[in-house]
Computed example of a mutant assay.
Amino acid sequence: MFLTIIVCGMVVALSAIRANCHQNPSVCLQAACPESWIGFQRKCFYFSDDTKNWTSSQRFCDSQDAALAQVESFQELNFLLRYKGPSDHWIGLSREQGQPWKWINGTEWTRQFPILGAGEYAYLNDKGASSARYYTERKWICSKPDTYVQMVQQSPN
């Protein structure tokens, strides 16, 4: 019997995933997310304790093979608001003066939630999202796919 599953809109053969595990068993035995990261909906999130400006926060995320968090659903927004605590946290949303908001990966923001303020860089606060200038120091949230999603993306079709 040949079993396929759908992961993030991709049809993946379970046999291909198993083959990858046999070739590299340490990948299949790893936790879905690195230590001190929190998993939610096939993503791993890192909530910083330090504060940095938006640019330095993104550099930190880059050093972790991640990016400032991109919010893709109301469930994800609620998760981030719940786990970030009372502090403001940078996310991966910015805009040029007079231009539309864009995520760190270049896709346009689809107005899933309101962003208050006149700044060019978005952050999450107690009430949702707001904006400020890049040089303001805040905590930040990084995100990246969990190891299962990474393994599926790397497996041959």
Score class of each variant (00 low, 15 high):
Val71Ala: 00
Lys144Gly: 05
Gly85Asn: 05
Pro25Ala: 07
Leu116Asn: 01
Cys28Ala: 09
Tyr135Val: 08
Ser57Ala: 14
Ala129Ser: 04
Trp109Leu: 07
Ser48Met: 12
Asn53Lys: 04
Trp54His: 12
Met10Val: 13
Lys144Arg: 13
Tyr148Leu: 14
Trp103Lys: 01
Ser143His: 03
Trp90Arg: 02
Gln75Arg: 07
Gln41Lys: 14
Ala129Glu: 01
Ala32Met: 09
Phe40Cys: 04
Trp54Phe: 14
Ser63Glu: 15
Ser155Gln: 02
Met151Tyr: 04
Gln23Ser: 12
Lys52Phe: 14
His22Gln: 12
Gln153His: 09
Pro145Val: 03
Glu108Ser: 03
Val71Gly: 00
Asn125Met: 04
Pro156Val: 05
Thr55Ile: 14
Ala19Glu: 15
Pro25Lys: 08
Asn53Asp: 15
Trp90Asn: 04
Ala32Asp: 15
Asn105Glu: 06
Asn78Asp: 14
Ala118Trp: 11
Glu35Phe: 11
Arg42Asp: 14
Phe40Met: 09
Ala32Ile: 03
Ala19Gln: 13
Val12Tyr: 06
Cys33Ser: 10
Ser48Tyr: 10
Met151Trp: 01
Gln23Asp: 13
His89Leu: 06
Gln41Phe: 12
Trp109Met: 00
Glu76Met: 15
Trp103Tyr: 07
Ala67Asp: 11
Ser73His: 02
Val152Glu: 14
Gly106Tyr: 09
Ala69Thr: 11
Leu68Asp: 06
Pro34Lys: 13
Ser94Arg: 01
Val152Trp: 11
Ser87Gln: 12
Gly39Lys: 10
Arg18Val: 13
Gln150Thr: 09
Pro25Leu: 10
His22Trp: 09
Leu93Phe: 04
Glu35Thr: 09
Leu14His: 02
Lys102Arg: 14
Phe2Asp: 14
Gln30Ser: 15
Cys21Tyr: 13
Glu137Trp: 03
Gly128Thr: 12
Gln58Phe: 00
Arg111Ala: 09
Phe47Ile: 14
Tyr134Thr: 00
Phe45Ala: 01
Ser56Met: 04
Asp50Lys: 14
Lys43Leu: 12
Leu77Arg: 10
Lys139Pro: 10
Gly85Tyr: 08
Glu76Tyr: 04
Pro156Tyr: 06
Tyr46Val: 07
Gln153Lys: 07
Ala118Asn: 08
Pro25Gln: 11
Glu137Gly: 03
Ala16Ile: 02
Asn157His: 07
Ser57Met: 10
Thr4Ile: 06
Ser130Asp: 15
Arg111Ile: 01
Cys33Trp: 10
Gln99Lys: 08
Ala67Ile: 11
Gln154Phe: 02
Ala13Lys: 14
Asn78Tyr: 04
Val27Gln: 14
Glu76Ala: 06
Ser131Gln: 03
Pro86Thr: 05
Val7Met: 11
Leu80Asn: 07
Phe40Leu: 05
Leu3Val: 10
Ala19Asp: 13
Tyr148Val: 02
Ser73Leu: 12
Ser143Pro: 02
Tyr148Asp: 05
Ser73Thr: 13
Cys33Asp: 13
Thr51His: 07
Tyr123Ile: 00
Ile6His: 03
Phe47Val: 15
Gly106Trp: 03
Glu72Gly: 05
Phe74Met: 08
Val71Lys: 00
Phe40Trp: 11
Ile38Asp: 08
Gly85Cys: 06
His22Leu: 15
Thr55His: 02
Gln112Ala: 02
Leu14Trp: 02
Arg133Cys: 00
